[in-house]
Design a protein around this nucleic acid. Structure first.
Length: 219
DNA sequence: TTATAGATTGCCT
DNA sequence: GGCAATCTATAAT
């Protein structure tokens, strides 16, 4: 866990990072902080697992079908939140990449809680006292879990600039760098299922889908 | 207008 | 490991 003072010292990310290819951004975001600034308490999680979704050449990407009302954020300026409902139950959070007009994004698949754990547990309707050992993973391990923990919804958050000082949902860098990064196929998709576009901090207990095959990336 | 699949999760055996 | 829950974008009538 990190203190509110430490969070205030964390740096903003440079928007130019998000102009780059989602595969690069997905790796670069590992170790960074996703922060919900709400009155009373800040919630923050370290990004430990991501997936890259490309443009029209990636059949698994929402952008593959071209611009629609749902995916318009993907075609907009970089570093904005793309939030959508999946399976009628869960929200997924992505950040847009590449210049305005070009689609591409990174999906946030898992966070390690670093601040506001109590609020996260409340948002998840879980009792923190019962989350001993490996069960803490239930807080933020998985794309639907982390959005619920951070109370991210399409109505509230879709289209928000994640680098704006006015935003209540932002990305920060506290200087931590992952020691080892793993890569594997993306999880839960049927099209382009073999592309190795998932990235995670190797060994981190909040990473989802651990029993699958992976390789260690060069940093 | 109706049908279907989906970047998931949680509860069941 | 199997499968229901629950909504909606998109495809098929």
């Amino acid at each position: 866990m990190i203190t509110p003072a430490e969070l205030l010292c964390a740096r903003w990310l440079d928007r130019s990072l998000f102009l780059r290819d989602p595969r690069y951004v997905a790796r670069e975001l590992l170790g960074k902080l996703l922060v919900r600034r709400q009155t009373g308490e800040w919630l923050a999680g370290r990004i430990v697992e991501t997936e890259a979704y490309l443009g029209k050449n990636d059949p698994a990407a929402h952008a593959a079908a071209g611009r629609t009302p749902r995916n318009r954020v993907l075609f907009g300026p970089p570093a904005h939140a793309y939030v959508y409902l999946i399976y009628g139950n869960h929200y997924c959070l992505n950040v847009s990449c590449l210049p305005d007009g070009e689609a591409g994004c990174v999906l946030f698949r898992a966070l390690q809680p670093v601040a506001g754990k109590d609020a996260m547990a409340r948002n998840r309707h879980l009792d923190l006292r019962q989350l001993s050992g490996k069960r803490v993973r239930l807080l933020t391990s998985g794309p639907g879990r982390l959005t619920q923990a951070m109370s991210i919804t399409r109505l509230q958050d879709n289209g928000k600039d994640l680098l704006s000082p006015d935003s209540d949902l932002i990305l920060l860098d506290d200087g931590l760098r992952p020691k080892r990064v793993g890569t594997s196929k993306r999880i839960g998709i049927t099209k382009a299922a073999d592309a190795p576009l998932r990235y995670f901090i190797a060994g981190n207990e909040f990473v989802s889908g651990t029993k699958r095959e992976f390789a260690i990336c060069d940093l």
